[in-house]
C-alpha cells in the first residue's frame, strides 16, 4: 500500500484527508457512516470562549454549485467542548484538531490556553476570518498586523502545532500568509468561505437572515486552488488545501499544486462517506500509477 503519511508542522497524519471545521460537527455525528479512525484528522466546529447562539434562520441557501451559510459560529463553547465532546473524541485513534475563534486577540489566547493541556487535542486551527470586534468588525485575517497579533498570542501560550486558517476575502492572500508565517504559524489552511449573497426575487429579501453568508462547495474550488498555488510559492510551512473538494481528483489537484493535505467540507453534507470515498480514490490513483509515496505528488505542478 502506498505511503500516504504527511507531516503538518510537527503533527503526523496517516493520510492527508481531514475534515473541514463546521462541516463535521464534533465528529460523533459521522460515526454511523464511516470509521472515523480512517481519517487523517478531524477538525471540529469552531470554538469560542463562551457558547455562541449563532445567527437567526434562515442560515443556508443553495446557490449555483455551492451553498451560502451564515451559521454565525454557533458552538457549545470551549468548556462544554472539553467536558462533553472530548471524552468521545479521545476514544478515537485519530488526531483531533480544535478550530478556535475570537472577538478580540485576547479571546484567541485564552481559548488556546484552555485547550493546550487537554488530552487528545493534537493541534489548534486558528480561524482568523472572524470580525475583530475591538477593531470595528474588520476580520483579523484581512490585515497583516491583526493576523500577526492573534498568531503571536496563540503561539505564546501553546506548544501544540498551530495551523492558521486564512480568509479568501482579502486583496493579497500570499501577503497575509507570509505575515502569519513570520509570526510563528506551523502550517496554513486555506480557504475559508468567500462572502456572498442571494436574493429572493418574490419577496425582495435576502435568502439569508444575516443578508450575507459564506460560499462553499464546488463553486469556490478554482479560487481555492489558485490561492493555494499562490501561497505555496511564498511560504515554507505546509499548506492545507480547502474549498470545494468533492472527490479524489479535486484532492489531487490541490496536492499537485503544493498542498500537503486537504480538508473536506461541504462534500460531507452531500454524502457523509465522502471523506472515505476520496481516500479510496486517492489510493487507487496512486496504485494505478505505481506512486509509492504521496510526496511524489505534492507540489509537482509543471508550468
Amino acid at each position: 500500500m502506498p505511503d500516504l503519511s504527511v507531516d503538518i508542522g510537527g503533527l503526523k497524519l496517516k493520510n492527508p484527508i481531514m475534515t473541514a471545521s463546521g462541516t463535521f460537527g464534533y465528529g460523533e455525528e459521522y460515526a454511523p457512516f464511516i470509521n472515523l479512525n480512517d481519517l487523517g484528522a478531524i477538525i471540529v466546529k469552531g470554538l469560542s470562549l463562551k457558547p455562541r447562539m449563532g445567527n437567526p434562520p434562515p442560515r443556508i441557501i443553495e446557490t449555483a454549485s455551492g451553498m451560502l451559510n451564515a451559521i454565525g459560529l454557533q458552538n457549545v463553547g470551549v468548556q462544554a467542548f472539553i467536558e462533553k465532546k472530548m471524552p468521545y473524541l479521545r476514544t478515537l485513534e485519530v488526531p483531533v484538531i480544535a478550530n478556535i475563534l475570537g472577538e478580540d486577540p485576547e479571546e484567541y489566547q485564552r481559548i488556546a490556553e484552555r485547550l493546550t493541556p487537554v488530552p487528545g487535542v493534537a493541534a489548534l486551527e486558528v480561524n482568523i476570518s472572524c470580525p475583530n470586534v475591538s477593531k470595528g468588525g474588520i476580520a483579523f485575517g484581512a490585515n497583516p498586523e491583526s493576523a500577526i497579533d492573534v498568531v503571536r498570542r496563540v503561539k505564546s501560550v501553546t506548544d501544540l502545532p498551530v495551523i492558521v486558517k486564512l480568509s479568501p476575502n482579502v486583496t493579497d492572500i500570499a501577503m497575509i500568509a507570509e505575515a502569519v508565517e513570520s509570526a510563528g504559524a506551523d502550517a496554513l489552511s486555506l480557504i475559508n468561505t468567500i462572502t456572498g449573497m442571494s436574493v429572493d426575487i418574490d419577496k425582495r429579501i435576502p435568502h439569508l437572515k444575516n443578508i450575507t453568508g459564506g460560499l462553499s462547495g464546488p463553486a469556490i474550488k478554482p479560487i481555492a486552488l489558485r490561492m493555494v498555488w499562490q501561497v505555496v510559492n511564498r511560504v515554507k510551512i505546509p499548506v492545507i488545501g480547502v474549498g470545494g473538494i468533492m472527490d479524489a481528483s479535486d484532492t489531487l489537484e490541490f496536492l499537485i499544486v503544493g498542498a500537503t493535505a486537504v480538508q473536506i467540507g461541504t462534500a460531507n453534507f452531500i454524502n457523509p462517506q465522502s471523506t472515505i470515498h476520496i481516500l479510496n480514490g486517492l489510493l487507487a490513483y496512486m496504485e494505478k500509477r505505481h506512486i509509492r509515496d504521496i510526496h511524489e505528488l505534492i507540489g509537482t505542478l509543471k508550468c
Partner: peptide, 25 residues
C-alpha cells in the same frame, strides 16, 4: 432549510425555550 440532515452543519436552527439561558437554537 437543511444541508446535512444529521446535526452537523447547524444550518437548520430554530428558536426554542431553554431553562437556563431563556432561549437557544
Amino acid at each position: 432549510r437543511m444541508a446535512c440532515g444529521i446535526g452537523a452543519c447547524l444550518g437548520c436552527s430554530i428558536k426554542v425555550r431553554d431553562a437556563s439561558l431563556g432561549w437557544s437554537y
